[in-house]
Design a protein around this nucleic acid. Structure first.
Length: 207
DNA sequence: GTTGAGCGTT
């Protein structure tokens, strides 16, 4: 939710979204807004949070109205130290310029074969590309790969196990087992009474 | 109270 007083997110297709990575977990949209607003008209800022804990996930989306302003913000704020951590500003995948986005940067220079161009077109000679990759690589190399993989696997396992419990096979098997059990249980049917009585006793004892 | 690759809704 953006605290901009707007009732709903603006259409993504008409805004230029920037992906802000590597921010601290306590950095909020209010902290980012003054920084990004200096370089252009910020339409909206959104920070994905965890559903359960509500904590920040460590990145944000800043949406600009114009592309040149967004590009300027990328140039000026990428690598900016915020709360003791260098944030990385890139272009998000979504938006009107999604097709031109390569590795978080807009590829304006379309590889248009010029008549003057010789047969030699060394694509590896881009210095700009080199800088960006190096900057990103530095952040990654510092982090332990093992922890990241473990965490991801753990989360995946959790999700899968939950999915497995709802699988039709287990459900059918359980249902078949439960079917007679339930009918038998229904014959006795003192389940609720017994449970309630125990609870009542416990409650009485507690009190 | 912690963590650190990535792409998003209230």
């Amino acid at each position: 939710m953006s605290r901009f007083g707007r009732s709903g997110p603006p259409p993504i297709r008409d805004t230029y979204s920037l992906l802000v990575l590597n921010i601290t977990f306590r950095t909020t949209a209010d902290d980012l807004f003054p920084l990004f607003d200096k370089y252009g008209e910020v339409v909206d800022i959104y920070i994905p949070r965890d559903r359960r804990t509500g904590d920040s996930r460590g990145f944000a989306f800043v949406r600009y109205k114009y592309e040149d302003e967004a590009q300027k913000a990328v140039d000026r704020l990428d690598g900016r130290l915020v709360d003791g951590r260098e944030m990385m500003v890139q272009f998000a995948k979504y938006g009107p310029n999604a097709e031109r986005i390569q590795k978080g940067r807009i590829m304006e220079t379309v590889p248009k074969p010029r008549g003057r161009s010789r047969s030699r077109s060394p694509r590896r000679g881009y210095r700009d590309d080199h800088r960006g990759r190096d900057s990103r690589r530095r952040s990654r190399s510092r982090s332990g790969d093992r922890y990241g993989r473990d965490r991801y696997r753990e989360r995946d396992h959790h999700r899968r196990s939950r999915s497995r419990s709802a699988s039709p096979d287990d459900y059918k098997r359980r249902g078949r087992d439960r079917s007679p059990s339930r009918s038998r249980s229904r014959s006795y049917s003192p389940d609720d009474d017994r449970k309630g009585g125990r609870d009542f006793v416990a409650c009485t004892q507690k009190h």
